[in-house]
Design a protein around this nucleic acid. Structure first.
Lengths: 160, 160
DNA sequence: TTGCTTGCAAATGATTTGCACTGCT
DNA sequence: AGCAGTGCAAATCATTTGCAAGCAA
């Protein structure tokens, strides 16, 4: 459940911290919400993490955060489209920056230790999946908006 | 959150009820667990449902079940590989028969009403995804075992 | 001042568990 | 008898919420 070395998500997409915060502020403003210190702290913690993290992780990353406030900030950020909440296995929910701010990716989930890693798939594969999904969904009168792929297995550490 | 018309999962895969129960009994036996009336009732309810259902759904489907026993039966069935627990959106977890007993499929999830439908993808697409997943995972030293694809969108009813 | 945000403590609600009872074997 | 399975009621624990205090416009 440990900490792996991190590739800063924000920088890895060519968006630096300033742009990230500008984008977040914009989204909040669109919903007449302010970008407070607390919310910024949550965004920072998520931006630094290399993968989705739990609420305890978040509190550990910035111990000035109160638990209830962290939940409340997350809830606002989710409403506004800045944060995404994942509900995989495990007790705690996982939070990550929304793909609007990072890039389209999926998750590798270790069934042994529960760690979650980000992966991006080749564009061609994504395109092919989208076509297929449109196809199968339309048969059922379903309009697909987006998709998520979870790949379960064993991580390098747990394999050893 | 209503009930849609059901295609019996068990029969739709060419496995009749007898085979299903035999298979379940086998799995339970492998783990030195017995196939009791309670557990059978849970399996039946899941087999009749056309999609993953919640615990309240389960209790509604068979009101002779006690809540705690339903949870306990599910837990045993999950350990044994007969039931799979999904943790999508919403308060309640969703339960479905494991793919060992049905067939490999994925889920269409309506973001408006929360209903979950099963879909199967063309074999070619599944194969292509598996190859890609092996590929991207191996780069990270990750050994993929299985995957799940969730397609979010709007269902026919909610589109209307 | 007026209203949004925060922190603490208390409440909520799905799921789990202790314990006594029933039913197989 | 002996042990696994069940039901009830009580306990757990992540998450949410009421309320009073802090802060920004």
């Amino acid at each position: 459940m440990g900490s792996i070395m991190v590739t800063n998500r924000a920088t890895s997409m060519g968006t630096d911290g300033v742009d990230l915060h500008r984008a977040v502020a914009g989204r909040l403003a669109d919903h007449e919400q302010q970008y407070t210190a607390n919310r910024r702290a949550v965004v920072d913690a998520l931006a630094v993490a290399a993968a989705p993290i739990t609420l305890p992780d978040l509190l550990a990353a910035d111990d000035s955060l109160a638990q209830s406030s962290a939940y409340r900030s997350l809830s606002v950020l989710i409403d506004v489209g800045v944060v995404r909440r994942l509900v995989h296995l495990g007790d705690h929910a996982l939070f990550e920056l929304d793909e609007h701010l990072t890039e389209h990716h999926h998750h590798l989930i270790c069934e042994s230790c529960g760690i979650v890693l980000d992966v991006t798939l080749p564009d061609g594969v994504e395109a092919a999946m989208d076509l297929t999904f449109d196809d199968v969904a339309s048969v059922l009168g379903f309009s697909p908006l987006h998709h998520s792929v979870d790949i379960y297995g064993t991580c390098a550490t747990c394999t050893t």
